[in-house]
Amino acid sequence: MVPITYYLLLAAALFCMGMFGVLVRRNALVVFMSVELMLNAANLTFVAFARMRGDNLGHVSAFFVIAVAAAEAAIGLAIVIAVFRSRGSILLEDLRTMKH
């Protein structure tokens, strides 16, 4: 039996990697993947705590989050396609029409 702390540490590491990716990476798709990583870190935390406490609430929460993440991916990829069509690039440094 792996102690719960390990799961929580893994989740925290995933979350930090995701956050780092959103802040640092320049490719829209990689940024998008980093956000997914953060959501899954939250999922892992929910499930680990649910295991520890032996209740179902955390498991159910994870399912809701998975469904929401799928919907978010659909919208997000559609927007990335719209960006690519309008300027032929998905690099974030090209997204600065509105700088003052």
Binding site: F32, G76, I79, V80, A82, V83, S86, L95, T97, M98
Partner: peptide
Amino acid sequence: RPSEAGFKYFI
């Protein structure tokens, strides 16, 4: 502009 705004808002 709208797609850029949409992307920033989304991320």
